[in-house]
């Protein structure tokens, strides 16, 4: 366990070190990349709660990622044009304050996860995978064809939203914010894993009959973790939208779901820092391979296959050694 602990700490520290170095070397784009890693890792941490702890293979997490993104897009676009979001039954104004946006992102993605989860969890296994995928597509098509918020063009927000006490336009400040949120999410994931709830969930993943005989309904446990997972991924979506100052339906696309899942698997399922390692590796590959060939997806695919076939613990499995899983 000690080796895993050292690997986690080293990995977590690596990101701010890179960002601060880039800031001193005047390479703002590298800070942007580090911020992207932190945000995508956050999305992965969210998915990993459902996937690693709950054993729920969701291919529809892009729905929550996109809802978070649109929470930012909708609030900020109303603030940008000084038009109220709702006039009836009560007046709701747009906002360009991140805490407000985050709240809306958390609440709306949580509600969506509640509905999708309540329907999808009636099934399991491969049904669950396909149903979550289909619900994701439903949001995708809806976001494209609904004209009010830009449809397929998406929404461009010209100024990054603010956070009290920080200048989010400074790349390092925004990185710090995203990284802090990631740390909180990692802490939350650890807490859940060690709580009685997490232990019951873990037991339900391995044998649902066994927890049922103990008088616990796995459905409730799984729904709870699915909602939490959706909320964390939704928050990541809001941050991602702020990173790009732009939201579009492609956040809802099933490739997004696939990519979030790739981060988790590349890094190592159910490992605390798996998503972080995976997201970092993915961004690194994208930058390096993308430069070598227009067809870099072939290499990415091949690498992914090799990891799945021969390195089942992912990157963290290679670095930290086997067996962290039970400890998450």
């Amino acid at each position: 366990m000690k080796r895993a602990w050292v690997a986690n700490v080293a990995l977590i520290c690596m990101l701010p070190v890179v960002a601060i170095w880039a800031s001193m070397a005047d390479e703002p784009f590298i800070i942007t990349l580090a911020t992207k890693v932190a945000i995508l890792a956050l999305a992965g941490v969210g998915l990993n709660m459902a996937l690693g702890q709950g054993g729920l293979v969701s291919l529809g997490h892009a729905a929550f990622f996109g809802i978070g993104g649109y929470a930012m897009g909708i609030l900020a676009s109303h603030a940008q044009s000084y038009t109220p979001l709702l006039e009836w039954p009560m007046l709701i104004e747009g906002s360009n304050s991140m805490p407000v946006i985050w709240l809306l992102a958390l609440v709306s993605s949580g509600l969506a996860a509640l509905v999708i989860g309540a329907l999808s969890l009636r099934t399991n296994g491969v049904y669950f995978i396909m149903i979550t995928l289909a619900f994701g597509q439903m949001f995708y098509y809806f976001s494209i064809s609904w004209p009010a918020y830009g449809g397929e063009d998406g929404l461009a927000i010209y100024m990054r939203n603010g956070f009290p006490g920080l200048n989010t336009l400074v790349p390092l400040h925004f990185f710090g914010l995203a990284f802090a949120v990631l740390l909180v999410a990692l802490a939350l994931a650890t807490l859940i894993g060690r709580s009685p709830f997490g232990l019951a969930l873990n037991a339900a993943r391995q044998s649902s009959e066994r927890v049922e005989t103990a008088g616990i309904r796995p459905y409730r446990l799984q729904l709870t973790v699915f909602v939490l997972s959706g909320m964390v991924t939704g928050l990541a979506g809001a941050l991602f939208a702020d990173l790009n100052r732009f939201v579009s339906p492609s956040m809802f696309s099933w490739q997004t779901s696939g990519e979030i899942m790739v981060f988790v698997i590349l890094g190592g399922v159910a490992r605390l820092c798996g998503p972080l390692a995976g997201a970092a590796l993915f961004i690194l590959l994208e930058q390096l391979l993308g430069g070598i060939s227009d067809y870099w997806h072939i290499f990415l695919g091949a690498l992914l296959l090799l990891i799945i076939l021969f390195a089942r613990g992912g990157v963290m499995g290679l670095i930290a050694g086997p067996g962290e899983r039970a400890h998450v």
Partner: peptide
């Protein structure tokens, strides 16, 4: 090699195959 594995591995491996097929055909 994946029949005995979890669905998760199958999903990921076949996702990787999509990347390879799509770009391969384009190539």
């Amino acid at each position: 090699r994946l029949y005995a594995r979890e669905h998760l591995d199958q999903v990921l491996a076949t996702f990787a195959l999509i990347l390879i097929f799509s770009e391969g055909v384009r190539w």
